[in-house]
Amino acid sequence: MLLEIRDLHVSVGETDILKGLNLTVNPGEVHAIMGPNGSGKSTLANVIAGRPEFTVVRGEVSYQGRDLMALLPEERAREGVFMAFQYPAELAGVRTWQFLKASVDAVRKHRGMKELSIREFDRLLDEKRRMVRIDADMVKRSVNEGYSGGEKKRNEVLQMAMLDPTLAVLDETDSGLDIDALRIVADGVNSFRSPSKAIVMVTHYQRILGYVSPDRVHVLLDGRIVRSGGRELALELEEKGYDWVRAEAA
């Protein structure tokens, strides 16, 4: 087991958001999480990544057999937990290149690998950015500043490819992409797939699942996973909406 979440209750301030969530992810698997707006999908992603605003009230999250909640966000990242943000932050004046170098250095250092020379790093970056069709000028600009919506998403995939995580949680990385970009992102995700890695994809659309075929599809409703199935569940949801799941869950 790579990730195991048991009876997870999470609140922010006075509000309960996750209310007893269970999820098990094995190496090599791709899980899709769907659910209406406000149901808690991003909250789940953020809790896995360690965002401090969220309080874990009850439950357990283990990653590679360790208590994930005991680690700082940066420690989780170095241990191979990656999150692609639904709304990536803009970092004025911080060049994407420099940001990527610093992260790759931090992660490699933690894994006991030697720091990449500028040349080695550039070679790696060139390879990865070609894959997601980000041109060389873009990585010289400030992180996400003035990037279009689709460019931001591709930039998240680029970061995933550069950092080579073990568990990637992608929060709506397929939203707001044009048809070509959707393919590019899907190809990026597919080339990342491997028997030792796992992907949790939060999405509203079954379309991406046509490219990246998931092992499991889950419906997150009001802070709980109320239904799980295969790819056909996504198609069913697309056709019928969430009301029937809601009715069945009640």
Binding site: G50, E74, A77, L163
Partner: peptide
């Protein structure tokens, strides 16, 4: 902003 800090931490940098 907290968003910026968390973004960087999620990429492996200390606070």
């Amino acid at each position: 902003s907290d968003d910026q800090l968390f973004y960087l931490q999620q990429r492996g940098l200390s606070l």
